[in-house]
Design a protein around this nucleic acid. Structure first.
Lengths: 138, 138, 138, 138
DNA sequence: GTGGTCTAGACCACC
DNA sequence: GTGGTCTAGACCACG
């Protein structure tokens, strides 16, 4: 998996890193249980401070995307959604962000169908390699 | 129009302010040409510094959402999109954000239809008003 | 002569007004000795405050472009350059502005010939209706 | 590089600062990728507030002259103009300013050759250096 | 009256 | 260490 960081962008590096890993997990490039690179490896590879990578991992752990196995380092940990549906915290965040994005899109002249089409297209990129639950990831 | 600010949140106050005003414009609560509260009024009302409000206004101005008329203060300024479609800069931003949101939603167990339904619902909140300036859009 | 004002621009209205009148004089549309509209007329015509027009006139007077004749109001007054060459104050200002403009143009990738060509073209717009001194105007 | 500020002048300090830095970049005194002084350093050196310097930097950043590298502070960032020519926004601004300057010069008695000579001389100050990063410009 | 600018001093997130 | 944000209070240009 390739991680691309914009060092001079406005988004903090550790957030960019967190985002890229989340995308990797979403796409299935990082399978459930798979080990992430060590902090040292990744920081060397990206040319950033170890603290930065560490912070990204802490972030992902706090959000429940990864766990730290004492022997294998950080490993991907998909939530076992026992039919419980999505957690309400995430739903709230999602709603807020979509709310703002919708407002901006509306002002910029988007029609509803345009907006929904883009949303749909964005989500589809995460449905390619899996049927529905990513279970049989190769 | 009611503006709600989380003073102790992690999002800069001026950004929250900018977001709330964008939503207000999107909903049509702030119509094209309408005057925003003065910097002093709003800062007093919210209990923040004038410079914080001023920064939010400058931000909105730079993004093209408002103009500052020397006589009337800040006024809403909708882009006169002559059928030109949306600007590519915003499209890129929108795509990026939806990309990340999709990844998170996918991991959290959303099905495509769930996600798209939420997107659709979010946008619909900005399609209710059909008076005045927003009349000819539907 | 037509005067165009951008009410919501960043340049103060009275400065825009002053600039437009200077251009008019430069082009010869306002000939030496010709009377400018009264403050009241112009302010009504442009929809701005009388104070604004008055300030523009004061500005022009201080710079030596116009004089206020007690009977005829403000009249254009071209400097009678008795072979004295240009005044050093203006030369200094001109140099400063060209200095900054050059720096920006250089950074933006202009070659010297491009820049000089634009300068030349700009000046030529003020040489159309006159031979060299605008003396036989009208 | 020496920066000179007129603290009591009519031009906002942050604008003066922005202008001086632009000139420095144009002259090559500030090379591409070079770090600018930190906000604290420069504010102390000039005897102005940190926010004033910060605003100048934000201004330069918004204009694309510098970037803020999270590790090194503000660094010069020359546009990589791939033969694309100059951007139209700047061209428009340049034309407007030259237009006004020409009008004033014409009234002050400049001949075309005088004006063009001054323009040429101004630009040449930015063509002296041919080392390092500016070497391949011809 | 308006927004824009500036100060002195503080705190915070990021690296 | 860096830049970014915020405050309280001030002054100014503009209209």
């Amino acid at each position: 998996m390739i991680i691309k960081i914009d060092i001079s962008g406005e988004i903090p590096i550790y957030v960019q890193l967190r985002n890229e890993i989340v995308k990797g997990i979403g796409k299935g490039e990082l399978a459930d249980g798979e080990a992430l690179p060590t902090v040292r490896q990744l920081s060397a590879e990206l040319g950033v401070n170890t603290m930065t990578v560490s912070k990204a991992y802490q972030c992902l752990k706090a959000e429940g995307f990864i766990e730290t196995d004492r022997r294998r380092g950080a490993v991907v940990r998909l939530p076992d959604r026992g039919g419980a549906g999505a957690d309400s915290e995430f739903c709230g965040k999602l709603e807020n962000e979509l709310d703002l994005l919708s407002a901006e899109a509306k002002i910029k002249g988007f029609q509803k169908e345009d907006f929904v089409r883009m949303c749909s297209a964005a989500f589809e990129k995460y449905c390619l390699r899996t049927e529905d639950t990513m279970a049989q990831e190769g």
